[in-house]
């Protein structure tokens, strides 16, 4: 079996979305997620010589990222200096509420929903990975970042009909891929 090689020059391009998606489902904050992803790349760079080539680069980076996420939660917990488990909430007015007071909300999302969503994010990312680069780029801009058609056309210097052809091909491929991996 050929050993995996490591090439940090390609990391950002290949893995940043994947790692970001992985992080955002676990920390729920875009900025923190971005910082953690950046830390992961830097840490990966520093310990590159420890990479044995047994796993793929992506798996290896994810394993670093996992540590970073755990460290992040340790840090915010020790900041508060309390023994109780607390989480930070998005809105200020809820600050200081105990986690226990918030659990039993039947209208809230269940744990299964969350797990499913996490896996869905990964599945979609895997499928996006398989698309040709340009299709993936246009599809992401249009579908995930909700850019206007015109904005994408200007940025990538393509015509609108060109864009729709790319979108169509990307959607067909994505639908087929998701059908296989998800449904």
């Amino acid at each position: 079996m050929p050993k995996h090689i490591i090439d940090p020059n390609q990391w950002i391009k290949l893995y940043s979305d994947y790692l970001f998606n992985y992080t955002i489902t676990r920390v729920n904050d875009r900025e923190i997620a971005q910082d953690l992803v950046q830390d992961t790349f830097v840490a990966g760079l520093k310990s590159m010589k420890n990479f044995k080539g047994e796993a793929s680069e992506r798996t290896w980076l994810i394993s670093i990222l996992k540590r970073k996420i755990i460290d992040h939660y340790r840090k915010i917990n020790s900041n508060k200096g309390k023994a109780e488990v607390r989480m930070s909430y998005s809105s200020d007015e809820n600050e200081g509420d105990w986690l226990e007071e918030r659990v039993a909300d039947p209208f809230d999302k269940t744990a299964e929903d969350t797990i499913e969503n996490t896996e869905l994010g990964m599945a979609i990312d895997d499928c996006l990975d398989k698309l040709p680069e340009k299709q993936a780029k246009v599809f992401k801009m249009k579908t995930l970042l909700n850019y206007e058609t015109e904005a994408i056309c200007n940025e990538l210097e393509i015509t609108a009909s060109n864009l729709w052809v790319i979108i169509h091909r990307a959607r067909t491929a994505m639908a087929a891929c998701m059908e296989k991996n998800w449904f």
């Binding site: 998606n21 955002i24 969350t114 969503n117 992401k140 995930l144 970042l145 639908a175 998800w182």
Partner: peptide, 15 residues
């Protein structure tokens, strides 16, 4: 179906 999946709030990409 694909649109519905992608609308899922947990599907994120970086700006």
């Amino acid at each position: 179906k694909l649109t519905k999946l992608m609308k899922n709030p947990k599907v994120e990409t970086m700006e």
